[in-house]
Design a protein around this nucleic acid. Structure first.
Lengths: 269, 269
DNA sequence: TTGCTCCTCACGTCACGTGAGGTGGC
DNA sequence: TTGCTCCTCACGTCACGTGAGGTGGC
């Protein structure tokens, strides 16, 4: 029979607060070994210490409680390691995003911005290979990278002849409601039929108002603002699907400073 | 008269969602330039774009909304820069804490733990210089570093003769309720009277149950658990003020692996 | 007996997102 | 007129913390 301790003792031993332990009891993450039926007092056994120690470490790394639970109940060590490794990847991605956010803030504070130039241009209809999905706020960047990589790969493997730069079509709702439809495409002379999630897409002809953004995609909102300002000032009515053309992106160079993205808004009337 | 746009337009231009813009209106972070009295429609002016861009970047860096407001309303650029620099420091500290949490998790998963040995010892009363404060959950480490540095500095400057290793006294409540009284001290032959927040402290004699923790302080809960387990198994009743003795710490070496901390619980009876 | 530990329950926090139900404007 | 944009309001989310009011155990 193993020794048992009170919440207070267990809290001191694990450096989890009493309130936190009560909460973990309530949500079933760490149930006391015994609860006194009369007083309601919680009693923890010493065998629960390793679980508490693991919980504390995972929570310190912001792993959601539901996932911590999965780790604790994992069938085998492999499954457990996968869950932990996935979370580590998320932390890495978050770190990268924070770094780019810091750069983005520095850029905003340090540089005197002048508006990017806006011009208008008619573009003809194009045949293309494309991937379309409904995406949420957090997966935009990941989705974009993955989808575009796939398209580039197909172009290489199937030896397709690109007839223009890669681009994207984005529903306004994506920005306004943080959820919406997004498409990435590469214009080609002849598009093969469906291939995994890649399909042929006929992109319609439009009249576009365009501007070019230079630099990291973290700052692309600045170009959207410039383009939108121009359109608002000239009372130009626009469609709800925005285009981006990746004149120079991460598939060309890792140096974000030399990236160039054309932002284009279809003009109505 | 400057052009004005709808929420939807402004959302697309700033990459802030409509819901977010409404929220910022509600909390007074970014008020629309004009709100139609009849329809309630929000209208934003193009002059509000820079503010929105700054807000988005600061929020991407998790700066609390209240502080973002302070940045926006800062009297001069200096004050603004101070606020931003402070937040950057917090991000740095968070990063360091995440790194150590990752190490701590690795340690737990990779090493087979054996309990640290527990022994008992009587310690006599000691004269010391000390700093005492009531501290919360987040400032423990920062407070500890700062306070102990101050004590070491006084020892050097006033050429005091330490009569033992530096230590700390921690109220159990600090672990159980995440808020409580903490003291750090250095035993000296003769303690000068009050000096800033440093004061003389007579540390009473006690009988202690002790164990030694080796490694980073992020893993110190493991030693607390070992010591607590020993006490629970032997039905030893203990006092509510825990002692730590820093046999080897960051003031001796930056290599956390060789740090040694004695954890000691006063024995009652 | 006194204080101390522990209990429950309801509500607060933070920064929005969800969703119902509805209305003005082109 | 139809759909589209926008509105308000109440509630949900996440992981606890706060605080009131109360009870058992040494």
């Amino acid at each position: 029979m193993t020794a048992t301790v009170s919440v207070g003792q267990f809290a001191t031993m694990t450096h989890l607060s009493i309130k936190t332990l009560r909460h973990y009891h309530q949500v079933g993450l760490l149930e006391p070994a015994r609860v006194d039926a009369h007083t309601g007092y919680r009693h923890y056994s010493l065998e629960q210490l390793p679980a508490a120690q693991l919980i504390r470490r995972l929570r310190n790394l912001k792993m959601p409680v539901a996932e911590v639970r999965s780790v604790l109940t994992a069938r085998d060590p492999e499954q457990r390691n996968v869950l932990i490794a996935n979370h580590m990847d998320r932390l890495e991605a978050e770190l990268a995003q924070t770094r780019s956010a810091v750069d983005s803030l520095r850029t905003l504070l340090d540089t005197v911005r002048t508006r990017t130039a806006v011009s208008q241009r008619a573009v003809p209809a194009m045949t293309s290979i494309a991937i379309t999905d409904t995406i949420g706020p957090n997966d935009v960047v990941t989705w974009w990278e993955g989808a575009l990589s796939e398209l580039h790969a197909l172009v290489r493997e199937a030896d397709l002849q690109p007839t223009g730069t890669a681009g994207g079509l984005f529903d306004e709702a994506l920005y306004q409601q943080d959820i919406g439809e997004a498409t990435v495409f590469i214009p080609v002379a002849h598009a093969p039929s469906q291939n995994g999630r890649i399909r042929a897409l006929e992109i319609p002809a439009v009249q576009l108002a365009v501007t070019v953004h230079r630099g990291s995609h973290a700052d692309i909102d600045l170009a959207y603002a410039d383009l939108g300002s121009y359109l608002a000032e000239h009372h130009i009515r626009v469609g709800q699907q925005i285009r981006e053309h990746y004149l120079c992106d991460q598939f060309d160079t890792p140096d974000t400073a030399s990236w160039q993205t054309e932002i284009a808004w279809p003009i109505l009337d």
